[in-house]
């Protein structure tokens, strides 16, 4: 066992439910789920459905997925810098920006789910980062934007905050000023992550103080 994996095994793993701020939803029918199902109990949706719907190889999850080239080199540099700062504040978190033209029938949320899972994991680094990745999908063709988080970061994020952020930056997305839109999105993401981090810390402290109390009571008995 490598040192890193030893350290990982020593690290405490909490239940996601302890921090979860938003309900789980089905990428197919968007119904709210009470627990994690392999197949949606409402519509039967699963990963297989997604793969069948998109019968082609998913692109690798990189910092920029922009096959058409909506972002200029200069814009990418600026976004890279902003993402570097975000990484410094939240070293686990990765943000991937995908600007693509989808057909109208394709829901960006479902596309995000498919891409996230179908995209091949290239190396150990990618394997480590993937659960902490937040995928921003911008559908240029239809003027839609969606946010898909990985399992590890998902419990700490509030979906309503993402929606508020996107609503606030509506103008830049509408004008297809993706450089400004993405930069402002990163700024907002930093705030959302900060709130999530503070909440997580609060929960952990609360839980540890409760368990301390319980231990003390047990000791008295």
């Amino acid at each position: 066992m490598s040192k890193e994996s030893q350290a990982r095994s020593r690290r405490k793993v909490y239940g996601a439910q302890m921090f979860a701020q938003s309900a789980m939803a089905c990428p197919g029918c968007h119904g709210i789920l009470s627990e994690a199902f392999d197949d949606c109990p409402r519509c039967g949706y699963s990963g297989r459905t997604a793969v069948a719907k998109f019968p082609f190889a998913a692109p690798p999850i990189e910092r920029f997925i922009d096959p058409v080239g909506y972002l200029s080199g200069d814009a990418r540099q600026k976004i890279d810098k902003a993402l570097g700062l975000l990484k410094r504040r939240f070293p686990q978190v990765c943000l991937s920006i995908c600007i693509i033209d989808l057909v109208e029938e394709t829901d960006p949320r479902e596309f995000g789910f498919w891409m996230f899972n179908a995209s091949e994991v290239r190396d150990e680094e990618d394997e480590k980062n993937r659960p902490w990745t937040i995928l921003l999908i911008i559908d240029d063709q239809n003027g839609r934007v969606s946010v898909t988080p990985g399992y590890a970061i998902e419990p700490f994020l509030n979906e309503e905050s993402w929606e508020s952020l996107l609503r606030m930056e509506r103008k830049h997305f509408y004008e297809k000023d993706y450089e400004v839109a993405v930069l402002r999105f990163i700024d907002g993401a930093s705030q959302i992550l900060k709130v999530g981090a503070a909440r997580a810390l609060h929960r952990i402290r609360k839980r540890s103080s409760r368990s301390d109390e319980r231990n003390r009571k047990g000791g008295r008995k």
Partner: peptide, 10 residues
């Protein structure tokens, strides 16, 4: 890796 997200803005 992910269970998908339910955030969409048009």
């Amino acid at each position: 890796w992910s269970g998908g997200g339910d955030v969409l803005a048009t």
